[in-house]
C-alpha cells in the first residue's frame, strides 16, 4: 500500500525521515499485539506533519520508533538517509506524558538540555527566563512539578523541548492540556518557529482543527492494527494566520473532509 501522497509542491528532495513497511508488535502477557502495520511514510525537511487517528492506533509508537526508543519489528526507518539507531540525537521528543524530573523545579527542568550543551550559568538563566515567558510560566521558575497543574507541566515540558533546539521535533499531543487561548498562541508560536528555523515536525493531535491549522500535511490513521488511511495535503498558505483561519473556506472544507475520513471509525467503534 502506497499511502503517502506527494510532498508539498511535489518536492524532488529526498525525505528527511522515511518509514518503509514499518510494523511493530508488542508482547503483552505472552500474546503478540500488532500495534502498527505496513506504515509507509516520508517526512520532508521543513514541513509540519500532523498525525490524527483513534486512540491506540499507534501514533505514539511511530514517534517512539522514529526517536529510536525501540526498533520496529518489520520494515526500516531512516533519518537523513541513515537507519535510525537507538536514541536518535537529531530529534527532540515531547512525549505524551511529561516526564519532568520531580527533584528539579521548573527552571531546573528547562535548564537540563542547556546544561548538557554546556552553556554557562548566566546564559542558561537568561534562556530559561525567555522560554518560561514564551510558554507563559514566568514566575513559576521555583515551583516543583508536583505543585503545577497538568497544563503547566505540559508547558514546562514544551519549554524544555524548545530549549534544546533539535533539528526535528516529535510532539505527542503537546497542547492537549492547554486552554483555548494559550493553545492558539502556542500553535502560532510553533508554526512561526518552524518556518523561521526550517524545523521538521511530527505532531500528534486528537484535535482535527488543530491538525489542519498547523499542519502542512495531515496523516490519518485507522486502528487495530494501526495503518495509514490517508495522507491529506493541507492547501493553506505556509504563512497562514491561524487566528483568522476559522473564516477561511479552504480550512472549513478540509476539516470537514477529515471528519468524513475519520467518521467510519466512529461508527465502527460503536
Amino acid at each position: 500500500m502506497q499511502a503517502q501522497s506527494a510532498a508539498p509542491d511535489d518536492d524532488p528532495r529526498a525525505p528527511l525521515i522515511s518509514f518503509s513497511g514499518i510494523g511493530k508488535q508488542f508482547t503483552v502477557k505472552g500474546e503478540l499485539l500488532q500495534a502498527v502495520e505496513n506504515i509507509d511514510l516520508d517526512v520532508y525537511q521543513g514541513e509540519i506533519l500532523t498525525l490524527v487517528g483513534p486512540s491506540g492506533c499507534g501514533k505514539s509508537t511511530l514517534l517512539n520508533i522514529c526517536a529510536g526508543l525501540y526498533p520496529a519489528t518489520a520494515g526500516d526507518v531512516s533519518y537523513a538517509g541513515k537507519p535510525v539507531e537507538p536514541y536518535n540525537p537529531a530529534v527532540g521528543y515531547m512525549t505524551q506524558s511529561d516526564h519532568l524530573l520531580p527533584w528539579r523545579d521548573v527552571a531546573g527542568n528547562i535548564a537540563i538540555p542547556l546544561e548538557i550543551k554546556g552553556l554557562s550559568k548566566p546564559e542558561i538563566k537568561a534562556q530559561v527566563e525567555e522560554l518560561m515567558e514564551t510558554v507563559g510560566l514566568s514566575g513559576f521558575g521555583g515551583s516543583y512539578p508536583n505543585q503545577l497543574s497538568g497544563g503547566m507541566r505540559k508547558r514546562c515540558a514544551l519549554a524544555r523541548l524548545l530549549a534544546y533546539d533539535p533539528e526535528t521535533l516529535l510532539m505527542d499531543e503537546p497542547f492537549a492540556a492547554l486552554d483555548a487561548m494559550l493553545r492558539m498562541r502556542m500553535q502560532i508560536e510553533i508554526r512561526e518557529l518552524c518556518r523561521r528555523l526550517n524545523k521538521t515536525v511530527m505532531f500528534v493531535t486528537h484535535d482535527l482543527d488543530e491538525a489542519v491549522a498547523i499542519g502542512d500535511r495531515c496523516v490519518v490513521f485507522t486502528g487495530r492494527p494501526g495503518t495509514i488511511e490517508r495522507v491529506v495535503d493541507v492547501p493553506l498558505a505556509p504563512d497562514r494566520n491561524i487566528l483568522h483561519l476559522r473564516k477561511d473556506p479552504d480550512y472549513r472544507t478540509i476539516t470537514a473532509d477529515l471528519w468524513d475520513v475519520l467518521a467510519p471509525s466512529i461508527t465502527e467503534d460503536r
Binding site: A67, L69, Y87, N88, P89, V91, G92, Y93, T95, S97, H99, L101, I112, P113, E115, I116, K117, Y164
Partner: peptide, 17 residues
C-alpha cells in the same frame, strides 16, 4: 525511570550527565 533516562539521552546526555 527508564523514560527519564531515555529523554535525557535524546538530549545528547553522556553517561556522566
Amino acid at each position: 525511570s527508564r523514560e527519564q533516562v531515555a529523554i535525557l539521552r535524546l538530549m545528547g546526555a553522556t553517561e556522566k550527565h
